[in-house]
Design a binder for these strands. Structure first.
Lengths: 165, 165
DNA sequence: CAGGGCGCAGCATTTTATGCCGCACCCCGT
DNA sequence: ACGGGGTGCGGCATAAAATGCTGCGCCCTG
C-alpha cells in the first residue's frame, strides 16, 4: 500500500505527469503511464472527482506582461480568539491581489503573497485592510526582487517510495 | 518588436481563462473569448511560443495524498558578492523539495518554499545545504500549519485596465 | 474449482485539433 | 479617393483525441 486509501503506483504517475504537463493528451498520458487510453481516462476522471486533482491552469509569465510587484507580507493578528482567524481569512480571500495565504508557526501568524500593479497599488490594498476591521495588529512587507524559480509542482516521486525504492 | 504592446484585449482574456481553466478545450475557449476556434488556437500557440504561457499543470491536492510538511524558509547568505547569489540559486534549484525561490528585499535574502515528507526529511535537506558550500549564513523556518487558500492565478483583469479601462 | 467483481484493451462514435482557403478590414502609398 | 499588400477572421476538410460500450482475463472469495 503506497499512499492513502486508493491510489496505486499508476495513479501517482498520472498525478506526477499531469502536474507537470497539464495539457498532455489522454493518449500520450496513457502511453506514459503504461495504460491504454480508456482506463487512463477513467482514472483521471476518478482522481478529479475524488478531489486529488482540483483543477488545471496555464502558467502565465507575469514578467512578460509588464512590470508588476510581488510582495510577501507577514501579518500578525491583534487577537487570537476563536473566529479571529476565520474572519480574517474569509475577508482576504476576496481580495484578488492576494494570491496565497498561509498560516504559519513562528514569529507571526500569516504569510500572504500579493501581486499588484506597483507599490501604490499594493499600499492602497494594505491601507484598506488596516482601515477596515481585519484584526491586523502589525505587518511587514518583503518585496520580491526576483524569483529565480517557481516550480509549479511538488516532488511526488520523492514524497513517496523514496524509502523503499 | 518590443515586448509590450503585443497583446490585445483578446489575448488577455485568453491568458486569464487559461490561467484558471488550463484544460479547457480550444472550442470552449474560442467561444469564451469571442472568436472562432481557428484564430483562437493560432493565438494560443503564439502566446506559448512567445513565452507568455510557459506551461500547463494540474493542481494536485497535497493534503489528500497524505500528511506532508510545507515550510517557508528565510535564508541569509554569508557573502553578497557577485556570484554568491547565482551559485546559491543554481544549487538549490536541483533540490526537488524546494519548489519556490524568491529573492526579496528586507531582513534576509531568500524566501524558499519546501515540501517534504516530514520534519526529519526537511531537516536532512537543510543539513545537507549547511554542510555543503551553499554560502548560507543563517536561516529561519516557518512551518505551514494550513494554507487557507492558494489561488493558482494572479488577477490579470486587475493588473490591467483598472487605470485606463 | 466455480462465481462474481474489477480493471484493462479494443472498437465505434462524437468531439476537438489543426491546417488550408478565401474574404473583409486596415494601413499606406500613389 | 483609389488600389495594393498584409493581417486576422470565419468556414471547411481531415487527422487526432475523447468518450462510451463490450468482452476478456485476473484475482478474490466461498
Amino acid at each position: 500500500m503506497l499512499p492513502g486509501p486508493k491510489l496505486d503506483r499508476i495513479d501517482l504517475k498520472i498525478l506526477a505527469k499531469l502536474q507537470q504537463e497539464g495539457r498532455i493528451t489522454n493518449v500520450e498520458l496513457a502511453d506514459a503511464v503504461g495504460l491504454s487510453p480508456s482506463p487512463c481516462l477513467t482514472r483521471v476522471k476518478r482522481l478529479e472527482k475524488a478531489g486529488y486533482i482540483t483543477g488545471y491552469g496555464a502558467h502565465v509569465n507575469l514578467n512578460k506582461l509588464g512590470e508588476f510587484l510581488t510582495v510577501f507580507t507577514e501579518v500578525t493578528l491583534s487577537e487570537h480568539r476563536r473566529g479571529d482567524f476565520s474572519r480574517f481569512e474569509s475577508r482576504i480571500v476576496k481580495i484578488d491581489e492576494i494570491v496565497e495565504c498561509h498560516l504559519v508557526s513562528g514569529g507571526y501568524d500569516y504569510l500572504l503573497k500579493f501581486v499588484a500593479r506597483g507599490v501604490s497599488h499594493y499600499q492602497s490594498i494594505i491601507e484598506g485592510m488596516l482601515e477596515s476591521d481585519y484584526g491586523i495588529e502589525k505587518y511587514f512587507s518583503y518585496v520580491v526582487i526576483k524569483s529565480p524559480f517557481i516550480k509549479h509542482h511538488f516532488p511526488i516521486q520523492n514524497l513517496f517510495g523514496q524509502t523503499h525504492a
